[in-house]
């Protein structure tokens, strides 16, 4: 099963995504895409680490190039989150690059090997603010990545203040 979990900031996405893994007893991998730069990033990483504590996840820190993650058959993968991965890929060099194809293929390929894959992403296009070109491009690209993953995902769920709202497929929990 491939499940895409989306929603705004601090809407309970991670908590819900982790809950899906509560009754999975194969090897569980947590792919962390957030670069630990700055005090707030450290705080967020620490908060998420505490949330996962005792749940049996192996953590892999992978900020770009998720296709390089060596997976074994029949494992469960939680990727968190697409918003960071997309930004890391886009802004890693001198010029902004469009990582849509690379990321979508990466997620698709991983999801075919893993028995269970959950991708946590972000809704970033709903504040109605006019941003500078690079940020507008980020909103557009992340939106497209979300749509493309939603196409092949079995389930798509939006979290609203911790409540899972089903958009496609079934609620895994």
């Amino acid at each position: 099963m491939t499940t895409l979990v989306t929603g705004g900031s601090k809407c309970g996405k991670s908590g819900y995504a982790e809950k899906i893994f509560d009754h999975i007893y194969v090897r569980k991998l947590y792919v962390a895409t957030m670069k630990p730069y700055g005090e707030e990033a450290y705080a967020a990483i620490e908060r998420h680490r505490k949330m996962r504590e005792g749940k049996g996840f192996e953590t892999i820190e992978k900020y770009t190039d998720i296709h390089e993650i060596p997976l074994t058959d029949n494992c469960a993968v939680l990727l968190e989150c697409m918003g960071n991965l997309c930004a890391n890929e886009m802004f890693c060099g001198d010029t902004v690059i469009d990582p849509t194809e690379k990321i979508v293929k990466g997620v698709y390929d991983l999801s075919r090997i893993a028995g269970e894959m959950v991708i946590v992403t972000n809704q970033v296009g709903s504040d109605g603010v006019d941003y500078a070109e690079e940020t507008a491009e980020y909103i557009r690209i992340l939106g497209e990545i979300n749509r493309r993953i939603a196409e092949f995902a079995d389930n798509v769920i939006e979290c609203v203040y911790g409540i899972p709202v089903l958009l496609k497929g079934v609620l895994p929990c």
Partner: peptide
Amino acid sequence: GGGIIPIEKSEREWRENVG
């Protein structure tokens, strides 16, 4: 919470607390 992370720290903190 459905937008870009605000540049202003207090706005970020508000968004977090509202969530």
